[in-house]
Computed example of a mutant assay.
Amino acid sequence: MGGRWSRWVPRAALAIGIVAVLGMTACSSGDDAASPRGTQTSSDAPAGQAAPKPPAKITLEPVSGAADVSPVAPVKVSVADGTIEELTLTNPTGKQVIGELSADRTSWSVGEPLGYGKTYTWAGTARGTDGRTAPISGSFTTVTPARQVDASLNVGDGRTYGIAMPIAVKFDRAVTDKAAVQKVMTVTTSVPTEGAWAWLDDRTAHWRPKTYWAPGTKVNMVAKLYGTPFGDGTYGAEDRTVHFTIGRSQIVKADTRTHRLVVIRDGVQVADFPASYGLESDPGRVTHSGTHVVMSKHESYSMTNPKYNYENVVVPWAVRISNNGEFIHGYAPSIWAQGKQNVSHGCVNLAPANAKIYFDSAMTGDPVEVVGSTEQLGPEDGDYHDWALTWDQWLGKSAV
């Protein structure tokens, strides 16, 4: 009796239990419905799937359609989210430009100067991380100069010069934008050397050290003139480079008052010659005081000066020391005056035998320090009056 009574459940209680279970089910279903089916709340990719990879992004430098591009400006193609599969840059005749592809194949850069006034065209493909290919295309045009300016140098490759030698760059047209040109001309030396560029006129720039070069210095000069704007629509025609060496130290000390010419080599006096300098009573014949520079050597040289009524007077062992007609040379007719008085027309006269000794020792670029006269070396004397300027005066002629 008791056992049967314990198994009996009233109908009302059973109904309440069923409702409770159904209620719990309805609550659970409500939580799932809070986020609609198919909606991605934290990722573009469905749950459990990776995001799609991006396509290749191609950048051209300069941009396609660019005009008046410098032929030496950076020219490259870069690819983000991908790599370059193939690429060419061609000139108007179809010739391919030399270039270099980076190791990771994400960039390609031009490896040679381009031409003036030409249109260059890109062609190629890149593959993105999405696996798809994308075309590389476009074009640009380089600048067409109104004129091209060329330059010449006073020093030569592999040559050796004296300790006062300046580097002279002579342009065949006037330079308007001197600062732009000066910035692309660099001088490097094997021995630390303080020096600077100075513009001596609109066509001429010289580089000289603050003090004489150290013997044995190796000098490199690079002028990246091609593609450089010179102003007024003109551009450089060609780069110029030179590598030379400074030789031993030899300094000539020439005193017009003592009528002597002394040669000092590597700090040691090696010669002391009697000399005759320019006649002091005539300003047109005075040997100019100041530091001259040996410019050239001639075993014989014909002298002409209509103002003083002589023509084709041939002298031996002539060493030019300025562009105003001053030489150190042999002259037998003035031996009587050498060491005693000054009678020349501006040159330094030595006995022919002494002139030969000096001639054999002289090197282009050697300094000749003249003192004691009433006239000073200056710009009107032409090349090379570089050392007639103080260092501050020299720096004042820089364009930058």
Rank of each mutant, 00 (worst) to 15 (best):
D202M: 05
D239V: 01
W213K: 06
K183P: 00
P274Y: 10
P166F: 11
V191G: 00
A196L: 07
Q182C: 11
H243L: 12
V155W: 01
S190E: 00
A237L: 01
D177Y: 02
R203F: 07
T160Q: 07
L261T: 11
A214G: 09
D177H: 04
D150L: 10
D201P: 05
A214R: 13
S152A: 15
P229I: 07
F230D: 03
E238M: 08
R265A: 07
W199S: 06
A198F: 03
Y226P: 06
E280C: 02
I264R: 12
A271S: 10
V169Q: 09
K218F: 09
T228Q: 10
T186G: 09
T217Q: 10
G247I: 09
Q148E: 12
F244C: 05
V262S: 01
T211K: 06
Q250H: 04
L261P: 02
I163G: 08
I163P: 10
S276M: 03
K183R: 09
E280W: 12
V222A: 14
F273P: 08
S152T: 15
T241S: 15
G162L: 06
H259F: 00
D202G: 01
A196Q: 13
A196R: 14
A164Q: 05
T211Q: 05
E194M: 13
W197F: 11
R248F: 09
G156Q: 14
F230G: 04
V219D: 06
S249Q: 00
A254D: 10
G195Q: 07
I251F: 11
K170I: 15
V175N: 03
W197M: 06
G156M: 15
V175F: 07
K178C: 01
H206Q: 13
Q250N: 09
E280H: 06
G231M: 08
T241W: 13
D201H: 05
S190H: 00
G227D: 03
T160N: 01
H259I: 00
V222E: 09
L153E: 13
T256K: 03
D239R: 08
T241M: 15
T241C: 14
N220T: 15
A205V: 15
I246L: 07
V181K: 09
K210W: 08
T256Q: 03
G233F: 04
F273T: 12
S276P: 01
A146Y: 10
L153V: 04
N220S: 14
L153R: 04
Y226V: 01
T217G: 11
Q250M: 13
I251E: 14
V219G: 13
D239G: 09
T217S: 12
D150H: 14
W207Y: 05
Q182N: 10
A271I: 10
V242E: 08
